[in-house]
Amino acid sequence: MVTHDSEEDTQPIIREAMVYEILGAHPRIAEWLSRGRSDFVDIKYYPRGDLASYSQRNTITAELQSKWFQQILEAVVASHSHGVIHSDLALRQFFVDDALNVRLGDFNSSQCPGHPALGYEKASHCLPRDYDLPNTEASDVFALGSTLYELVAGHAPYSELAGPRSDDPDVIKAQIRRQHVVDREIESRYRNQVFPDVSGLFGGGIILGCWRGEFQNAKEALDRYVDGL
């Protein structure tokens, strides 16, 4: 449970509660335990953690990867069917439940009918656009492509631009200082339709289709995936 005092701080909490109320109960959405309250959000605890961390700690079978690929698509389709644009899709936003199914959460930046988004994605997942305009299904679908890429590649798109992972505090500080340079480079590549190589990756055609805008919505991407099974 998270509580805040100032109006600025409570806005994301109120937004998240609003979105969970809109979405209702769904097997691909994190379970909201504080239904009926708008001043705080209490989500069911998922001891396996988020999908990004879980995938780093465990060996993922091809069967499980395929299931999660589809379930990530299903989660976004479910959100969009209610007019909810997540606005910060990434692998870390999906929880792994006890049955090893994934559930989408962290809607505190989301856009919903009548309420503009409170944020947008990190550069590796962000469709270059006019950020003063509302987020759209297209921006979510682009981020969906990057999320699926994370799942099958084991890292975020263009993560190599930040340099190798390190526990050295000085290296970490240097990487943080130059993150804005990395972000600009990623945005430039995306604007020029230059994407990470997906040849040989599971679901690569779906991922590239999300990045290239070949799908009008997430449902089209899900249908393409299911048809290919």
Score class of each variant (00 low, 15 high):
V152L: 03
A52E: 13
S81N: 10
I206M: 04
G36R: 04
W32H: 15
I60W: 00
S53A: 15
E214I: 02
S81Q: 13
N135M: 11
A123G: 03
Y46F: 09
V41I: 05
E31S: 11
E150C: 09
D183W: 00
S38P: 01
G200V: 07
V102R: 04
D5W: 05
Q93M: 11
I29G: 05
G203S: 04
Q111M: 12
H180A: 12
Y46Q: 13
T136N: 05
S53G: 14
I207R: 05
L208C: 04
G203P: 05
E220T: 10
Y45F: 14
P157L: 04
L161N: 09
C126V: 02
A52Y: 07
G105A: 15
E160R: 14
V76W: 00
Y45L: 14
D130E: 11
L208P: 00
Y131T: 11
G203Y: 01
Q56H: 08
N135D: 09
D42E: 13
R165T: 12
H180F: 07
K67R: 15
I14C: 11
E31I: 14
Q71W: 02
G119Q: 02
V141P: 04
D5G: 10
W32S: 13
D98M: 07
T3A: 12
E74L: 10
F69H: 11
T147F: 01
I206H: 01
S6K: 12
I13W: 03
H26F: 04
A221F: 07
A62E: 09
G203C: 06
P157Q: 06
L73V: 08
F69A: 12
R35P: 04
Y131S: 10
A143K: 02
A90K: 15
P47G: 14
A143W: 00
R191V: 02
A218P: 04
G228K: 15
L104S: 08
E160N: 13
E160D: 14
